[in-house]
């Protein structure tokens, strides 16, 4: 009888699946609201970008974007469930809906945008691939690396750029594939490889974790363009718009001088109509996105505007000590440029 009961249950379940289970276009915004939490994919650990603080709380430049988005959508910057993903697991996780947004220093490329079926919603860090090596090697340029062993994270664009770089320059090398940044660091530290290659920001971050950062140097060559940014699944335009304009709001806030400290006061109304539109005092931009009027104000209040986030986690005064460089606003000599809030 037991068997028959189970058989019956399977039969009913199968029938139900056929009848009601046709996959449709999921409205991510509704799912996030219903769940009461934003599932955000982040790195397994990269100083400055995604790391745990002394209290064990996830924090960092990529994490801050998740918190801003959660504040905009759910009204609370802490309503985020962080999912740690490696270079290989991140795309299947996003494609399968395990996460709502991926904010994990991911390079925007045509094939990922088009072929893998994702939508990149902007760039939050303009980066490029570089090499780090021991000063004692006496190497001045990456072109002198003939015969060297190179540590590399698998499943990343850096793996492909590396192969291209050595092929173009007709240099032989031994690739040493590693799964995570932490393991790559351990292998490099043990001199399993002569140099480690990844995005220059990642190299700066990894270098801070070495016992003697001064013994290592980042080579001058930047061998690729790596525009890093958050991404969502393709096909849900409303959700992509929300994610995109939250990032734009953080950048525009820097441009217009809206900060974590003054956003509450500015939200009550200012002389600048663009600030008023963004913060919900004028117009109905929140409604257009399917959110309430104060969404942008909350996003900015969460971790501050783009400049505040940058300086706090990765900027000149942080342990990483990265300059703004390309990531300065267009009017300050960089290429950071948000479309207008109009």
């Amino acid at each position: 009888m037991k068997f028959k009961q189970i058989a019956g249950a399977v039969a009913v379940a199968g029938a139900l699946c056929v009848a009601g289970g046709m996959p449709g276009q999921a409205a991510t915004l509704d799912d996030v609201k219903a769940a009461g939490t934003l599932k955000c994919g982040i790195n397994t650990g990269l100083p400055g970008f995604a790391y745990t603080d002394d209290a064990g709380k996830w924090t960092g430049f990529d994490v801050a974007y998740c918190r801003a988005l959660a504040a905009a959508v759910l009204g609370d910057a802490n309503k985020v469930t962080f999912v740690n993903l490696t270079g290989k697991t991140r795309f299947p996780a996003l494609a399968a809906g395990e996460i709502d947004v991926l904010s994990r220093n991911t390079t925007w490329t045509l094939s990922r945008d088009v072929d893998l079926g994702f939508t990149f919603i902007g760039v939050n860090y303009y980066d490029g691939q570089g090499f780090i090596g021991r000063k004692a090697l006496g190497v001045k340029s990456a072109k002198e690396l003939g015969g060297a062993s190179v540590c590399i994270q698998t499943g990343t664009t850096t793996e492909l750029n590396l192969a291209d770089f050595f092929r173009i320059n007709k240099i032989k090398y031994e690739p040493v594939p590693i799964e995570t940044n932490a393991e790559a660091r351990a292998a490099y530290d043990a001199e399993r490889c002569d140099v480690y290659t990844t995005d220059a920001s990642g190299l700066a971050a990894t270098r801070t974790t070495f016992p003697k950062p001064g013994d290592h140097m980042v080579f001058p060559e930047i061998i690729s363009k790596e525009p890093l940014g958050p991404l969502v699944r393709q096909g849900d335009d409303q959700w992509a718009d929300i994610a995109r304009w939250t990032l734009n709001a953080l950048i525009t806030a820097e441009e217009l001088g809206v900060t974590q400290g003054n956003v509450a006061k500015m939200a009550e109304g200012t002389d600048n109509p663009e600030i008023n539109r963004m913060l919900g005092k004028e117009g109905s931009m929140g409604k257009m996105l399917g959110l309430d009027a104060n969404w942008a104000a909350r996003a900015i209040a969460a971790e501050g505007n783009y400049a505040e986030m940058f300086e706090r986690y990765i900027g000149a005064d942080s342990p990483l000590g990265l300059g703004r460089g390309l990531n300065a606003l267009y009017k300050d000599g960089g290429i950071l440029y948000s479309p207008p809030f109009r």
């Binding site: 399977v10 379940a13 199968g14 699946c17 046709m22 996959p23 494609a95 893998l116």
Partner: peptide, 27 residues
């Protein structure tokens, strides 16, 4: 009969769902 239908239904659903997801993702 119910068991066979159920298993066939589940299989059909899995195949159908996979194809739909692939299409949705543009693959």
């Amino acid at each position: 009969i119910a068991l066979v239908l159920g298993v066939a239904g589940l299989a059909a659903f899995i195949v159908n769902n996979t194809i739909a997801n692939y299409e949705e993702a543009g693959l």
